[in-house]
């Protein structure tokens, strides 16, 4: 009776047989290049959001006092603070998901990714349900869509504040939504066994994207919700 070796009974997972692209000298070079490319993309992201930060800085300087009133009146720091904590925790969980892949623990990576997506969806639900929908119903909209009536500033400064709030947070929210799909894709690929100690490049770059979303919120939160 022949004995089948244990390692022959199981088909190897894709990450176990992963071979880096033939045009790379080594897997390290491939990973470093992918990461550098991701960082360059994150640089463009920072520059894109800096447009909103610049608009904020200019109008904050011009309408210093009325922005204090507008922020206190239109925004609730408790909602923003809750979302900040949610995003910080999600940043931690995606780091742990990468750790799971590096250690070759598939289910650890999967469940930490799932936790990250739960946080991301929580952020979006809170944002839409407790901020965007009430604001749309009340007409607290930017620029020409503003139908709220007489705001605290009683001037067009309200509309400028809401304009920057809506554009900056909605662009950030879009990034969160895109992140939900990419992390979902990571979960599928994790279950297919694509990520392991030899190959976690995609997972790591997803993590980098998710962290820049977190960093942008770290700046948007005090700027919009904690004015004064």
């Amino acid at each position: 009776m022949t004995t089948v070796p244990v390692n022959m009974t199981k088909k190897p997972e894709p990450h176990e047989t992963y071979v880096h692209g033939h045009h790379w000298r080594s897997a390290e070079d491939e990973k470093d290049a992918a990461k550098l490319g991701m960082w360059l993309f994150l640089g463009t992201e920072a520059l894109m959001f800096s447009g909103f930060f610049c608009a904020y800085a200019v109008f904050r300087m011009l309408y210093f006092d009325t922005w204090h009133e507008s922020s206190k009146y239109y925004l609730n720091w408790k909602i923003g603070g809750f979302n900040t904590l949610v995003l910080l925790i999600s940043s931690f969980t995606i780091v742990q998901a990468i750790r799971g892949a590096q250690l070759g623990r598939k289910m650890m990576a999967f469940w930490y990714l799932a936790a990250t997506n739960v946080c991301a969806l929580t952020f979006l639900v809170v944002k839409l349900g407790w901020e965007y929908l009430p604001k749309i119903q009340k007409g607290e909209l930017p620029g020409g869509f503003f139908t709220y009536g007489h705001g605290p500033a009683g001037t067009t400064h309200d509309q400028v504040f809401l304009g920057i709030y809506w554009v900056a947070t909605a662009t950030h929210g879009l990034h969160v939504l895109i992140g939900v799909f990419i992390i979902g894709w990571c979960m599928i690929r994790t279950m297919k066994g694509h990520f392991g100690p030899k190959n976690y490049m995609f997972l790591e770059n997803t993590g980098l994207y998710w962290h820049i979303v977190d960093i942008i919120w770290i700046f948007l939160f005090p700027m919009l919700y904690l004015v004064g």
């Binding site: 990461k35 550098l36 960082w39 360059l40 994150l42 640089g43 920072a46 520059l47 800096s50 447009g51 930060f53 610049c54 800085a57």
Partner: peptide, 16 residues
Amino acid sequence: NTVVVIASMFAVLLFI
């Protein structure tokens, strides 16, 4: 990677 980050931050600061 840090060089890329610092260059990006420099561009952001220059802009603002």
